[in-house]
Computed example of a mutant assay.
Amino acid sequence: MSPKRGDRVTVPPSDPEWDVRFGTTDAVRGWEELCRLALPNTRRCLEALRSAPCSRAQHCRQHRLRGDLATHRHSGVDLEQWEYEVTSGGRVRYAVDPDKRVVWVLYASLRHPKDTAR
């Protein structure tokens, strides 16, 4: 999608940072909803995805999914799938492409996805 008038200007990642991109249109809408209602937490999420998308330092907030959800096929490549807890119910689910240093945001919502059971 090409930028258009009124769209947010984003900067490319600096050298050690990862590039964070939307993998689905629904993720774009969900991200905007998270920004509207939980901006400080969403900003922390973006910082975590840019700096260390596979970090296990904050396991209660950021962790790799398990079982059938552990991987996600994106553009013909199986990638590790992770989740970041933005709020008590809000989640960002993403796939990590280490070869291209890209994080693909696949799901973003104030509601917990129904396919994970803890």
Rank of each mutant, 00 (worst) to 15 (best):
H59W: 07
H59Y: 08
H59I: 04
C60L: 03
C60Q: 07
C60H: 04
C60E: 06
C60Y: 04
R61C: 06
R61I: 09
R61V: 04
Q62Y: 02
Q62K: 08
Q62C: 05
Q62M: 10
H63M: 06
H63C: 03
H63F: 07
R64D: 04
R64P: 10
R64A: 10
R64Y: 06
R64C: 05
R64T: 04
R64S: 09
R64F: 04
L65E: 01
L65V: 00
L65H: 03
L65K: 02
L65Q: 03
R66L: 09
R66V: 08
R66Y: 03
R66K: 13
R66A: 13
R66H: 11
R66Q: 09
R66N: 09
R66C: 11
G67F: 01
G67A: 06
G67T: 00
D68P: 05
D68L: 11
D68E: 14
D68W: 02
D68C: 05
D68M: 05
D68Y: 03
L69K: 15
L69R: 15
L69A: 15
L69S: 15
A70L: 00
A70Y: 00
A70G: 10
A70I: 00
A70N: 02
A70V: 00
T71K: 01
T71Y: 00
T71W: 00
T71E: 03
T71R: 00
H72D: 09
H72K: 14
R73K: 13
R73S: 14
R73C: 12
R73D: 10
R73V: 12
H74M: 02
H74V: 01
H74K: 10
H74E: 00
H74D: 01
H74C: 02
H74L: 02
S75W: 09
S75V: 10
S75M: 12
S75H: 13
G76I: 07
G76K: 09
G76E: 09
G76D: 11
G76N: 13
V77K: 09
V77E: 12
V77L: 09
D78E: 14
D78V: 00
L79I: 08
L79C: 06
L79Y: 04
L79S: 05
E80H: 10
E80G: 13
E80T: 10
E80Y: 05
Q81L: 03
Q81W: 02
Q81V: 01
Q81K: 05
Q81Y: 00
Q81T: 00
Q81C: 04
Q81N: 06
W82Y: 15
W82T: 06
W82F: 14
W82C: 12
W82S: 08
W82P: 09
W82V: 07
E83I: 15
E83L: 14
E83S: 15
Y84V: 12
Y84I: 12
E85P: 07
E85M: 13
E85C: 13
E85Q: 11
V86E: 01
V86W: 08
V86K: 04
V86H: 08
V86T: 07
V86L: 04
V86N: 05
V86A: 07
V86I: 08
T87V: 11
S88F: 10
S88Q: 12
G89R: 12
G89D: 15
G89V: 07
G89T: 10
G89E: 14
G89Y: 10
